Amino acid sequence: MDSTSLISSMSSLPLFFAMYFTIYLTAHFIVFRSWSPKLRPEAASCLISLAHGTPAVILACLAILADSTTGFATINTHFQNTVLEYSIAYFLMDLCHYLTFYPTDILFIGHHLATLFVFVTCRYLVLHGAYAVLILLALAEITSFFQNVWTLASARREDSETARQVFDLLSPPFYVLYSAVRGFAGPLFVYKMVVFYSSGVADNVIPKWLWVSWICVVVMAISVSVLWISNLWIELYRERMFKLEKEKKST
Rank of each mutant, 00 (worst) to 15 (best):
M10A: 14
S11M: 09
S12Y: 03
L13S: 07
P14R: 04
M19Y: 11
Y20M: 00
L25Q: 11
L25C: 10
H28L: 11
V31F: 15
S36L: 14
P37M: 03
R40Q: 13
R40E: 07
E42P: 00
A44S: 15
S45F: 05
C46I: 02
C46V: 05
S49K: 08
A51I: 09
G53I: 08
L59S: 10
L62P: 07
D67V: 15
S68C: 12
T70Q: 14
T74W: 08
N76K: 10
F79L: 14
L84I: 01
I88L: 12
Y90W: 09
F91G: 04
C96E: 09
Y102L: 14
T104D: 13
T104A: 12
G110M: 04
A114R: 02
F119E: 03
L125S: 13
V126M: 13
L127Y: 04
V133R: 08
L139P: 05
I142H: 08
S144Q: 07
A153F: 01
A155H: 03
T162N: 00
Q165R: 15
Q165V: 05
D168L: 10
P172I: 03
P173S: 11
F174W: 03
Y175C: 06
Y175I: 09
A180V: 13
R182D: 03
F184R: 07
A185Y: 08
G186F: 11
F189S: 01
F189N: 04
V194D: 04
V195A: 11
S198V: 05
A202Q: 08
V205M: 15
L210H: 00
V212K: 06
W214D: 00
V218D: 02
A221Y: 00
I222N: 05
S223L: 12
S225T: 06
S225R: 01
I229L: 06
S230H: 14
N231D: 10
R240W: 13
K243L: 13
K243H: 12
K246I: 06
K246G: 14
S250R: 09
